[in-house]
Design a protein around this nucleic acid. Structure first.
Lengths: 189, 189
DNA sequence: CTTTTTACGCTACCGTAGTATCGTAAATGA
DNA sequence: TCATTTACGATACTACGGTAGCGTAAAAAG
């Protein structure tokens, strides 16, 4: 059962990811050069490619590592929950350089493995939003007969559309408007 | 007023675009090699770069050229119009290789000039959808108080979101569901 | 100790996008 | 005719992502 050959150097992965993080932080996806990352980490390029199949996979691993899980507890008010979730996603998108997201999306479309990783990255939040929408619908707050999955697409999709296609900014205001459009106008208390 | 130096060879642009179209048609964005396009068109690479600043700009010019304007006449029924428009956009997106769209989006995020071109490409349809939504809202068919621009984002954004992020297919059914979600359930006649 | 297996570094290599330089061709203006 | 200006082709170059091959180091199995 034990490993047969020479064991992998345990420090390499961390050093490479640290070097990659330092590079990508100041210049985005394009500025991250595999040669430079390898040199900075004191590692041969071939060794780097033994761990990650492509630059895109390295970046995905990097993002996955940097990601802090935003804990989400339902507050009882679906409207507040949805607003918080959508706003958080929007904030996360604006905090990340657009070119990085775009290049990641492009890599996901090109390489199936990267696509899976990217989708796994977002599935957690996607599920959270879906759950809140489904609850709101069952509670009668959402009047639409449309399935929660579609409503989620209409909450989150516009964020990506604005970011990647129209280039318009993602203000907190906009996130709230999206929620209002799905839930209906806020009722006065 | 007349041009001063040696005039540009009028046939080059067409030959290059034809060669590029032939290459991109069988392999997408990545398969399009500038060197091969230049060789195929019988043109020096430097001449090619004198006309298009980057591979992305060449591809944008290519798409712009290939694009046929889909004429749209309002039918009087906003629901039918919206369904037709959204379905047409979805069909157009699925007909184009996803990697091509993704790479174009990535190039748009990287190079401002490409971004303008890409946005100009879609602005026409975007305006058409906006006009229909605004009319429907004024006619009282759409009950939402949300601005037409946001509703348009919620109609079109999910298409891109599915295509580029979640990877789910864009069925005609889905387009109709999006319209129903915005307009409310269809009323029986 | 010897064989086998895996990891590593190194060098060389391929195809790519894009740039720089240079000689030359084709036009205009004096 | 001659200088100027622009376009073109050709060559060489840089930096990049990614691959192949080789010698060697470190472990386990015999």
């Amino acid at each position: 059962m034990a490993e047969r050959g020479r064991p992998r150097d345990a420090g390499i992965e961390g050093r490479v990811l640290a070097a990659a993080a330092a590079e990508i932080r100041q210049g985005g996806y394009d500025a991250l050069s595999i040669d430079r990352v390898a040199e900075r980490a004191g590692v041969a390029k071939t060794t780097l490619y033994r761990r990650w199949a492509s630059k895109a996979e390295l970046v995905v691993a990097l993002i996955t590592n940097l990601r802090e899980d935003v804990p989400f507890e339902p507050s009882g008010s679906p409207r507040d929950d949805l607003t918080a979730l959508v706003t958080a996603i929007a904030a996360n998108l604006t905090a990340t350089p657009t070119t990085l997201i775009a290049d990641l999306v492009a890599a996901a479309a090109r390489e199936p493995r990267v696509g899976e990783s990217v989708r796994a990255l977002w599935s957690e939040r996607h599920r959270a939003v879906t759950a809140v929408v489904a609850n709101a619908q069952q509670a009668g707050i959402v009047l639409s007969h449309v399935s929660p999955a579609v409503l989620v697409d209409q909450l989150v999709g516009p964020l990506y559309y604005r970011l990647l296609v129209t280039g318009e900014p993602l203000t907190p205001d906009y996130a709230q408007t999206l929620v209002c459009s799905v839930l209906g106008p806020e009722e006065p208390r």
